[in-house]
Design a protein around this nucleic acid. Sequence first.
DNA 1: TCATTAAAAGACTAAAAGGTCTTTTAGTCT
DNA 2: AGACTAAAAGACCTTTTAGTCTTTTAATGA
Lengths: 146, 146
Amino acid sequence: MFNKETEYAIRALVYIQVQNGESSRPGIEEIAKEIDAPKFYVAKILQRLVKQGVIQSIKGKGGGFYFEKDRAGITIKEIINLIEPSKDRQECGFGLKQCDANNPCPFHDKYAPIRNSIDELITSETVLTLAQKYILKTHRTVTESE
Amino acid sequence: MFNKETEYAIRALVYIQVQNGESSRPGIEEIAKEIDAPKFYVAKILQRLVKQGVIQSIKGKGGGFYFEKDRAGITIKEIINLIEPSKDRQECGFGLKQCDANNPCPFHDKYAPIRNSIDELITSETVLTLAQKYILKTHRTVTESE
DNA sequence: TCATTAAAAGACTAAAAGGTCTTTTAGTCT
DNA sequence: AGACTAAAAGACCTTTTAGTCTTTTAATGA
């Protein structure tokens, strides 16, 4: 669904939010290990997100990454747009420049609703909602395995 | 939806089928021009599809590309699998190795139905069905503009 | 203030995707 | 046979994506 950079960004941000909920501020070493992604690559991605104001960071001992107040409410769509600003998610599946209900490509009728569902998904989900689902899942698994 | 190579392959195959319907066997020059794609790149893609037995070709004057008997009934999914054999279209959107209804990632509930719709789309559509829609569209446009 | 810690900066490399071009092979037509 | 036409083969190049590593900057705390 996403490219590697976006995928790592989402996983990292969700992990940061989950940890922030536990009053902890994870560093890259920990984040990369937990989300199973290359350390230096994740570092680069997070540095960019800090510059773009999505997250905050603190250097030195006890440092790490965290969300300021309600910043975790950022949608997945906003994150995608920050990471791949040129990507057009409304593109025609057949590759036509002009493709709509009035001038449909052979995929249009079936593909348009799918594209809309994807847009709905990335617009409705935020780092916060994903983190909540993640916590829920972890709790259920722990409970079930007891 | 697709990468460039797959996209050009689909457009080229649909164009070939449309022309075959008019008892014509287009060459690369014509195909590349009509589907608005780089000539040598399309040539490379079609050469591979000939080797893989999807289409047939004839060299020399009056030559070009064509489908044998019912070969245009090939599904889009089969074409994708020939061009990108390693691609896994059932991958988890969050990047988990293990992700299903019992062990869902935070995207799973919303993303699984979308993935299924895409699979349904590429399984049900063939070069032939796309070519028929393409012809239909062309006819309607011509009729409407008269 | 100095050692330690951890993020920031940025140069560098590797692999994959996308694209171009030349030469060879196999047909057709006169 | 010889000229011509068009696909096949394959070398080569460019851009993008993915990933690595070293050095610098800034904060902490003994």
